[in-house]
Nucleic acid binder design. Structure first.
Lengths: 320, 320
DNA sequence: CAGATATATACTCGAACTGAGTATTATCCC
DNA sequence: GGGATAATACTCAGTTCGAGTATATATCTG
């Protein structure tokens, strides 16, 4: 065991998000035998004037990508959560600053690929139905985790968290909260890899979703949560859209991100009345059905309304 | 000039907030001749398991304060924004992680004092009237800043930002955006101290509000913005209230934080119907007027409603 | 070309929420 | 008891929201 060092390194990671064929996707770097990773690199205080500039440089080198919209998410510094399937923590302590970036391009560079984010969070996609794994696997395993608590007090707290995260009334924004609960309960691979076994959860647990390197899945969870929240009060979806689009295409992208179905008629009423889009007079040429008008984003709303966004309306599964 | 070092230090700073006699206040550390500072200290990777634990330790030592509710705000790493009125940047690059903490205690330790946050942001308090300095000083100075732009394009962008920040329709959450605009325009002391003079803004500008050490006023701006936003969808105000309180006391605290006046009858309807509070059956004994019932926070709402918070209703100045 | 199918778009309706106000009640002070 | 002050109850109209019906315009099938 090496002596603890007091050196610090700052890791910059980006969850770069695009939506392709109704799948919200992240750009991951994959090497043979290793877990998927977000594009990342260390912050270099000599050459990087700001954290964000450092991030842009790293991402550019690793993925030949020119970041557009970016937003800082969170800074994680937890000891022991910066490992890989290969081995231990690096000698110096890594503090990890996560970013969210949005893009419409889906080019791939060597060693990078786009992957649907629901690979990593299969329980977060409620567009078709409530994912069966929640009732079949997650809730029972979490209940077991609650029962295994050291005291009745802690057990009760755990039950409360389970209820908030997976109980009645799905709050699509609690992505990070849910991931952290699953982590603590030993239901994701990272927990065991990080050396968490042997607390009050055994090794026979299911491992949900696809694991990622370091704390990258935690960063991705933060990214999804932030994006799902921001959607409702800032017009960020349009960063993910082509210059013109039909209202249904827009709706599908919002639904993909939120992991929910929306009421079609109300959705168009909303975006229209909020002045988020304007018609172009041109029309799509669909394989079937009536052609839809092509719309574009009205940049002016940023000036007009205080907090324009795509408020999520209903949450039905079948639309008429 | 010393050679640039590639060492990094992580600074942890906390904006600790309480509300005392209708003034939202922050705990600042002040030494003779130096600017006010937030409690802060470097992150020690050997002894601190997480960033937040490091923060708690520093704050505890400097202010004898035991932090309750805390929340990470943002991580700043900009070169040149970590200076004091005394001198230059330290040799190693400082990356600054800001936190927000809420408390009801207003004890003071040696060298610390509570100070109303509107000392630092006098343009943010609209409770009585729109602060006169906005029309008298800020907007004219910002217009001058826009005119001084190097190109018509940049001038237009600046005018747009001015309009969003200080124009029609006050959005009380844009605290950071406004501070950053004033910084760039050279209207706060920190800009000049950080060496920003000589761009396209002269030294004859007014210096608005009280300056703080390093980037602490920026962190405080972030804290206010976050708190004003969070207020509306999470019951965080109650961290700042005594165990029991009248509805008017609660309203005054919300108003103090938001910097706005609210409609009294609607405010009580809101908190009641949202199930945020419950009556205790006891009553206040006011100097004048009818006694008010004392209420307490209903912790259960956290389980019941998905996003309970004190939505800000109206924005009138006179109440009936 | 008729009818089925698929999609876009317009419109309706009631419930809930919001902003703004009036009315009534309880207490203190003189 | 009357005025001042504040708490609390209630009203009302405008808006938003969820949900649904109706109609228009395409393609496909035969």
């Amino acid at each position: 065991m090496s002596a603890p060092s007091n050196a610090i390194s700052i890791g910059l990671s980006a969850a770069i998000v695009a939506v392709e064929r109704e799948q919200p996707s992240v750009l991951v770097v994959s090497h043979e035998g290793a877990e998927d990773a977000l594009p990342f690199g260390p912050f270099d205080p000599v050459h990087h004037r700001t954290l964000e500039l450092g991030l842009r440089k790293w991402v550019g080198e690793q993925t030949r990508f020119d970041l557009g919209y970016t937003e800082q998410l969170y800074t994680f510094g937890d000891l022991g959560r910066h490992r890989t399937s290969q081995g231990r923590d690096p000698g110096t302590r890594v503090v990890s600053v996560g970013y969210l970036a949005l893009t419409r391009q889906v080019r791939e560079a060597p060693n990078t690929q786009w992957r649907g984010w629901y690979h990593y969070f299969p329980w977060e996609d409620w567009r078709e139905t409530k994912p069966a794994m929640i009732d079949d696997v997650i809730v029972p395993a979490l209940r077991k985790f609650a029962r295994a608590a050291a005291s009745p007090d802690i057990a009760e707290q755990r039950r409360e968290r389970i209820n908030i995260c997976f109980g009645e009334g799905w709050d699509e924004e609690r992505v990070l909260e849910r991931y952290e609960l699953l982590y603590e309960a030993g239901l994701v691979e990272e927990f065991h890899r990080d050396g968490g076994a042997g607390r009050d959860n055994d090794a026979g647990n299911p491992r949900l979703g696809t694991a990622m390197m370091f704390d990258h899945r935690r960063i991705l969870a933060t990214a999804i949560a932030r994006l799902r929240g921001k959607l409702k009060y800032r017009p960020v979806v349009f960063e993910l859209m082509a210059p013109t689009f039909t209202l249904l295409e827009l709706q599908r992208v919002v639904e993909a991100l939120a992991g929910l179905r929306l009421h079609k008629q109300n959705f168009r009423r909303l975006v229209n009345e909020q002045g988020l889009v304007e018609g172009t007079g041109k029309f799509s040429t669909p394989a079937r059905g009536r052609p839809a008008e092509l719309f574009r984003f009205r940049r002016e709303v940023l000036r007009e309304r205080p907090a324009p966004g795509v408020r999520l309306g209903a949450r039905r599964n079948r639309m008429t």
